[in-house]
Simulated assay, not measured.
Amino acid sequence: MTAVTTIAALCVVSLTGCTVFTPVDTDTKQYALSTIPGDLPTERTHAATLLVLVPETAPAYATPRMAYTTRKYEIAYFSQNAWAETPAQMILPLIVETFRRTRYFSAVTSPPYFGRFTFLLRTEIIELEQDFTSDPAVLRLTVRFDLMRGTTNQQIAEKEFSVQEPLSERNPYAGVEAANGAVGRLLRELSTFVLKNAH
Rank of each mutant, 00 (worst) to 15 (best):
V138E: 09
D135F: 07
M148D: 12
T16L: 15
L40K: 00
V176N: 05
S34R: 12
P37Q: 04
K72C: 00
T35V: 12
A62S: 13
S168E: 15
L190V: 10
A178G: 00
F193L: 03
N81K: 02
S34D: 15
R149W: 07
T45H: 05
F193T: 04
R188S: 04
N153P: 00
P59N: 06
E177V: 09
N180C: 06
A137S: 13
G115I: 03
G38Q: 12
S168L: 14
T133Q: 13
Y113V: 02
R65H: 12
A32Q: 12
P87R: 06
Q164V: 11
S191I: 03
V24R: 09
T118Q: 08
I95T: 06
F21P: 00
H199N: 14
F132H: 05
I36L: 11
L121D: 03
V143A: 09
E97K: 07
F119R: 01
T70W: 03
T19K: 08
P59T: 12
P166H: 14
T70I: 10
T123Y: 03
V54I: 13
E56I: 02
T151M: 02
F119A: 04
K196V: 05
F105C: 00
G181I: 05
R140H: 15
T22P: 00
F193Q: 05
A8N: 11
T26Y: 11
P172A: 10
P55G: 09
F145G: 00
A84D: 14
T70F: 08
P23L: 11
T152W: 02
S79V: 10
T45R: 14
A3M: 15
L128R: 01
Y31I: 03
L128Q: 13
T142R: 13
V13R: 09
A47C: 01
L51A: 10
I125C: 04
G38P: 01
A157T: 09
E43Y: 09
V24G: 00
S106Q: 11
A198P: 09
M148T: 01
A179Q: 07
F78H: 01
V176A: 06
E97N: 12
E43P: 00
I125Q: 01
D25S: 04
N81E: 11
Q164G: 04
Y113S: 02
I95Q: 03
F78Y: 14
T102M: 01
T86F: 11
Q154I: 05
V183N: 01
T35W: 11
N81T: 14
Y173W: 14
T70G: 12
T63F: 08
W83G: 05
R144M: 15
G181Y: 05
E158H: 11
Q164A: 09
Y77W: 06
L128H: 02
Y31H: 08
G38F: 08
W83K: 08
V194P: 09
R144D: 15
R122H: 07
L51M: 14
E169M: 09
T102I: 01
G175S: 12
A58Q: 14
P166E: 10
S110K: 12
